[in-house]
């Protein structure tokens, strides 16, 4: 059976099989105009490689940083992103929407 190009869960499992730390970021809630619907996911490994998306590319960089931190601490975190006055081009959303993201490290069994 052919697999979808963005098999995020499968890729996270494959990274962990290679011995890499992994975290999963999920869009929990959106307000106003948001590029990706609730439930959209971004899988991240300890090297900063990622699969999937939680926005149109606006906040993935920041979420990857948070995910690397979550892998270190082992703690999940809830993050809010909106339009930032001074750094809109860095971690804000150009579309004017707001997004809540849950970043959860995947604990190897």
């Amino acid at each position: 059976m052919a697999h979808s190009a963005d098999d995020i869960i499968g890729q996270c499992l494959a990274w962990q099989d290679e011995g890499l730390s992994v975290a999963l970021a999920t869009v929990i809630e959106t307000w106003g105009s948001a590029p990706r619907p609730v439930g959209s996911q971004l899988g991240i490994n300890e090297n900063g490689d990622f699969v999937g998306s939680v926005s149109g590319g606006c906040i993935e960089g920041a979420v990857v940083e948070e995910a690397l931190d979550a892998m270190e601490t082992g703690q999940a975190k809830l993050l809010d992103y909106g339009v930032s006055n001074t750094k809109a081009w860095e971690v804000g959303l150009a579309c004017g929407g707001k997004i809540q993201i849950y970043v959860d490290p995947v604990l190897a069994s």
Partner: peptide, 15 residues
């Protein structure tokens, strides 16, 4: 979250 949850999700999708 535990890795087991990802394995269960993967299996459910396959099934």
């Amino acid at each position: 979250m535990k890795r087991e949850i990802l394995e269960q999700l993967n299996q459910a999708q396959a099934d």
